[in-house]
Amino acid sequence: MSAINGADMSIQDSSGEQTGGPRKAGGRLIVLTGPTAVGKGTVEAALRHAHPEVWVSVSATTRAPRPGEKDGITYWFMDEQEFARREAAGEFLETALVHGMSHYGTPLQPVLNHLAAGVPTILEIDLQGAHRVRQRAGELGLEVFYVFLAPPSFQDLVTRLNMRGTENEEQRARRLETAKVELASENQFDRVIVNDSVDKAAQALWEVISKEYGL
């Protein structure tokens, strides 16, 4: 079972006591999304390297870890049974079945805690997850700014997915079909950033964050 209730899942108040229970968000949540293989994780890592004060939510997933990935850092890895139990208990802000293969979800309480503390907070999630955040934002009192990370071209996306080498041919074909649908929805977002350069994309994302948080 994943140590999802570990230190990264919550923050402490000034008295040293761990915060608990739902809290109204005190800042604007930044949602970063985009199609498969567009480089969301790479841009997010570049952003955090340059601006470590930004907190990026760690998603939960039922897929198997890839080489080099670590539980609680890359994702909270868990089996389908644990994921379903936590989903039923209302522990996720959003969940999605991605490419018909694996479940992903955003643990809710850490997001609420960091926003309430005024920490710049980002979700890096797929398009399904972004739509589900839209559906729940009102009931949770969340103010959200949605950013879509786009490739320079669809062929660039194909090349990136092939170079990644983490999916078989059937999985790549499924992901690319999904990506075509996702790319058609980019006009639904507050800001579109084209990832033709990781550093430029990370800087553009920081400009969004600094404006929204008054940094």
Results as ranks from 00 to 15, higher is better:
T106E: 11
P107M: 11
P107W: 05
P107V: 10
L108R: 09
L108A: 09
L108Y: 06
Q109D: 11
Q109F: 06
Q109T: 02
Q109E: 12
P110G: 08
P110M: 08
P110K: 02
V111A: 09
L112V: 01
N113S: 14
N113P: 00
N113R: 11
N113C: 07
H114M: 11
L115Y: 04
A116T: 03
A117Q: 09
A117S: 14
A117V: 03
A117G: 04
G118D: 06
G118L: 12
V119Y: 05
V119Q: 06
V119E: 01
V119I: 15
V119L: 10
P120F: 09
P120M: 05
P120C: 10
T121R: 01
T121K: 08
T121F: 07
L123M: 10
L123K: 07
L123Q: 11
E124P: 00
E124M: 06
E124G: 15
E124H: 12
E124K: 04
I125H: 05
I125T: 11
I125L: 12
D126T: 13
D126G: 15
L127K: 02
L127H: 09
Q128G: 06
Q128A: 11
Q128Y: 06
Q128P: 00
Q128W: 12
Q128N: 15
G129S: 13
G129T: 05
A130H: 07
A130V: 05
H131Y: 13
H131A: 15
H131E: 15
H131M: 13
R132W: 07
R132M: 12
R132C: 02
R132T: 12
V133M: 03
V133F: 08
V133Y: 00
V133C: 09
R134Y: 10
Q135R: 15
Q135I: 01
R136H: 14
R136M: 08
A137N: 03
A137T: 07
A137I: 07
G138Q: 00
G138F: 01
E139A: 15
E139N: 10
E139L: 07
L140H: 02
L140G: 01
L140I: 01
L140M: 13
L140V: 00
G141S: 01
G141I: 02
G141N: 02
L142R: 00
L142E: 03
L142M: 06
L142V: 04
E143D: 15
F145I: 04
F145V: 11
F145M: 11
Y146S: 15
Y146A: 05
V147K: 01
V147I: 11
F148M: 04
L149D: 00
L149M: 13
A150K: 03
A150N: 09
A150D: 15
A150F: 04
A150Q: 05
P151C: 08
P151G: 08
P152F: 10
P152N: 10
P152K: 08
S153T: 14
S153C: 08
F154K: 10
F154Y: 15
F154Q: 13
Q155D: 15
Q155F: 07
Q155G: 04
Q155W: 07
D156V: 06
D156T: 04
L157R: 00
L157P: 00
L157M: 09
L157F: 06
V158G: 02
V158Y: 04
V158E: 14
T159M: 11
L161E: 00
L161A: 12
L161Y: 02
L161D: 01
L161C: 05
N162I: 07
N162Q: 14
N162H: 14
N162F: 08
N162D: 15
N162T: 11
N162K: 12
M163P: 02
R164F: 08
R164V: 13
G165Q: 12
G165K: 11
